[in-house]
Nucleic acid binder design. Structure first.
Length: 200
DNA sequence: AAACGGCCCAACCGCTTTCGG
DNA sequence: GCCGAAAGCGGTTGGGCCGTT
């Protein structure tokens, strides 16, 4: 996990999973100084991480407006639609799914949707080379939707979603879906509650 | 109960784009 | 217009978790 510097002049750079302490340092620093200029932020905050790593951690996990938990049926369909339109432009797609990160959408696509596409490929005899990418995607996805869409039959749209605009107050008070987060030792609710308690 | 394999996701890597001097 | 640094982006991977045998 730790990368030993081969050059003694190089500052030690940590890699691998972030610890709770590092997360707290980053959150506190950004709460006080704002985000941006990540390399100097990492140094100033005293984190032994690259600016890139700090930025990624903040954007994908620590930001108060990051939505975690299951992708909803609506989001699922939107991802399919936008991917058919734009392909692997994950950040562009993510902009249309408030609170979702490009990384999350990318992972979701690869692990859930692409899997179904590959499965459906095995059942289809259509010559794919006669279709363009978006046609292929739409056709293939018609085979992937039912399995996931079954989930949506019991899906109730969350009224909080539309008002989810990064408000820490809303964030703290929300009943966050935790189904896919149970492996997390600590939650972001804890962090932001702490932030509020300390008034930072 | 242990071993195994597949799934999932956080985080890294490398390339490209943007920005400031 | 050029160059270097920073930021953004998409692809890939390591490792933990969980279900199955």
């Amino acid at each position: 996990m730790d990368k030993r510097p081969c050059n003694s002049h190089e500052p030690e750079v940590r890699k691998g999973p972030w610890t709770m302490e590092e997360d707290l340092i980053l959150i506190n620093y950004i709460a006080n100084h704002g985000e941006g200029v990540w390399n100097s932020l990492a140094r100033s905050a005293g984190l032994k991480r690259t600016g890139k790593s700090c930025r990624l951690r903040w954007l994908n996990y620590l930001r108060p407006d990051v939505r975690r938990g299951n992708i909803t049926a609506d989001e699922h369909l939107l991802i399919i639609e936008l991917h058919a339109k734009w392909g692997n432009r994950w950040s562009k797609i993510a902009k249309h799914l408030p609170g979702r990160t490009d990384n999350e959408i990318k992972n979701y696509w690869r692990t859930r949707i692409q899997k179904h596409i590959k499965q459906s490929e095995n059942f289809t005899t259509l010559p794919l080379n006669n279709m363009d990418q978006s046609t292929f995607t739409n056709q293939a996805l018609s085979g992937c939707v039912p399995a996931d869409y079954a989930i949506s039959q019991s899906y109730t749209p969350n009224p909080a979603t539309s008002s989810f605009q990064g408000s820490m107050q809303n964030f703290q008070g929300s009943n966050f879906p935790t189904q896919s987060n149970d492996h997390n030792i600590w939650s972001m609710d804890d962090f932001w509650s702490m932030q509020l308690l300390h008034g930072d």
